[in-house]
Design a binder for these strands. Structure first.
Lengths: 210, 210
DNA sequence: ATGGTGTTGTTAACAATTTAACGACTAATC
DNA sequence: GATTAGTCGTTAAATTGTTAACAACACCAT
């Protein structure tokens, strides 16, 4: 049974938080969690949690709570987290390296399958068993390996060009760290991630009263 | 004239986008921008843009648009971006290094003033003219340098402890990259940034129909 | 059994946000 | 000058998201 209903962005964000917390509970050996357990751990009203879970078509038991394994399976299925989708990084500077080395890939249902860079001194080096390839190989590698997602961390001047290449090669999702609005067809899911956002938000929130 | 009204989170996010776009227009030599210019570049309805700008107490001219310099000044003032607030990074792994080397600091109104790490092989090394200091020095350095913000990129097990230290030292904002809910008083602004979020969101958005 | 208690599923009220609409004003044109 | 076209400021409506409330249900104790 699949929900055709679209979830709001904030709801997706909350569900991601739920998943993390519930998996923590699971590690602690819990078999059931209540909406209050989740809510109080996250600072979210229990009713809100129930409503989100309700939208999943969940099946909790009154007085007991939700079955941890079932809830995890539901959310992971919703997010398609249990299929290791091949992904690549384009631009292997500091940020690219940090992302490549993080544990986010498996958490997000992806597998780092290729790394590309422009710099001849970087191309050919190894990282975690992966050889860094030249930009010229992007199209072919994406095609042959069936890569579905590209993380773009190149200089601003090259971003659109790189995006065009990966789109033509059939990539379905782009995680764009470059502060540039990519011009892409709607069939490609683009998430823009500006590093400065967090800083600016904090700067705003701590602005001295005038 | 200061607005006591609180802006919604989504409005803050949009204003950050506006700022980037408007500064691009400025680089291109434009003196005025219309709400349509901004909106179409961002995929946002012009009316929405006007309403956001209206909330700033803006002063556009019909038929002409908004004065670029004035608009930039307004938003930068709103976000307190023109005061170089000292900040620090705690945890100098790959992610810490990537953040340290990025140009986000000046964009976000901060200045990287100190770097801390636990690893003896890293402590004492230099990065961009900054000596990496030991964790033990955090409290003193924050106090003496008046550091207002801390970026935390340490392992999960150390996050809460580090947060407590910086909070006691007087830090007013924390940018938390650790997938852990920090327990902090409300006087401290905490922004949580999970790297996996972007991936999970993309995974969700490109989930094959079932 | 039976009543009490805690928790879910679900609905309804409420609040916030987005979208739409339109008068007012400015600059350009004839 | 008068007219036209384009854009802002502002208000109202529609949509969306959040919060509150409560009946139904399951477990527990007696």
């Amino acid at each position: 049974m699949v929900k055709p209903k679209r979830l709001s962005r904030s709801c997706v964000l909350r569900l991601e938080l739920y998943l993390e917390i519930i998996e923590q509970f699971q590690k602690e050996g819990r078999q059931y969690v209540t909406s209050s357990d989740i809510g109080s751990a996250l600072g979210i009203a229990p009713g809100n949690v129930r409503q989100d879970l309700f939208g999943l078509g969940s099946a909790g038991r009154p007085k007991v709570g939700y079955e941890v394994t079932r809830l995890i399976a539901l959310i992971r299925d919703l997010f398609d987290l249990d299929r290791e989708k091949p992904a690549c990084i384009i631009g292997f500077g500091n940020l690219g390296r940090a992302l490549a080395g993080s544990n986010m890939w498996s958490r997000g249902g992806y597998k780092l399958a290729a790394i590309f860079d422009n710099d001849p001194s970087i191309v050919g080096t190894d990282f975690a068993g992966l050889r860094v390839r030249s930009i010229a190989e992007i199209f072919g590698v994406i095609k042959t390996q069936g890569i579905e997602m590209a993380v773009i961390t190149v200089p601003a001047s090259a971003a659109q060009e790189v995006a065009d290449i990966v789109q033509n090669a059939g990539v379905k999702a782009i995680w764009n760290f470059v502060p540039v609005r990519l011009n892409m067809p709607e069939t490609v899911a683009v998430e823009n991630q500006s590093l400065a956002w967090g800083l600016i938000t904090l700067s705003h929130r701590t602005r001295p009263a005038q």
